[in-house]
Simulated assay, not measured.
Amino acid sequence: MKTIKLLFVSIFIVNTSVLIAQDENEKYDAELAKQYEADEYGMKMYTLVLLTSGENEDDSEKRNVAFAAHMQNINALSEEGKLVLAGPFGKNDKDFRGIFILNTTDVAEAKSLLEADLAIQQKYLKAEYIPYYGSAALISHLEVHGKIWKTQP
């Protein structure tokens, strides 16, 4: 009976140590994690900005100017490392227009980064700011993207 108990305890210990070992990432790179400001899960906080149609439905040249400035603002924020991801949505019945993921945990800072955006300022777009927890490596896609676009929007 003691042998059977000892066998079960041994099996339990071996299985437990195997499960614990599986939680550790063999490819973990501490320097890279530090560079991307990753927590122990490889994640970090950002601010997600959900853009919807604003109240201003004016379809004049002012709108074209505002959206041209909007694109300039996107490019400037990207170059500064403040914009991690941006893009428009396809047609949808929710009136969603696009998203930004900003490299800041502070919603007030996110708002200040977009306060000069004419499309938001002139109410062609409305911005909702939401704290977002995602992969700390999101920012790394900018380097790759910079090598694959042929024509800048």
Results as ranks from 00 to 15, higher is better:
23 D>N: 14
48 L>M: 15
93 D>T: 15
52 T>A: 01
24 E>Q: 11
148 I>E: 06
114 L>T: 02
43 M>Y: 14
79 E>L: 12
83 L>C: 10
63 R>P: 01
15 N>Y: 12
142 L>R: 12
45 M>V: 06
25 N>H: 10
132 Y>V: 00
68 A>V: 07
22 Q>C: 07
132 Y>P: 01
57 E>P: 03
16 T>D: 04
114 L>K: 10
93 D>A: 08
97 R>V: 11
108 A>Q: 11
51 L>Y: 11
3 T>F: 11
131 P>C: 08
40 E>S: 15
13 I>E: 02
128 E>P: 01
13 I>L: 15
8 F>V: 14
139 I>R: 01
116 A>P: 03
61 E>M: 11
143 E>F: 03
150 K>S: 03
85 L>D: 02
111 K>Y: 08
115 E>V: 10
19 L>M: 05
56 N>V: 03
46 Y>F: 15
98 G>V: 05
139 I>F: 00
95 D>I: 02
55 E>T: 14
124 Y>R: 00
150 K>Y: 03
143 E>G: 15
19 L>T: 10
2 K>W: 03
132 Y>K: 01
56 N>M: 09
94 K>N: 11
112 S>D: 15
93 D>M: 10
90 G>H: 05
77 L>S: 13
140 S>I: 03
115 E>H: 10
121 Q>W: 04
55 E>N: 14
107 V>K: 09
11 I>T: 12
138 L>G: 09
3 T>P: 00
1 M>D: 11
138 L>V: 05
95 D>V: 07
120 I>E: 08
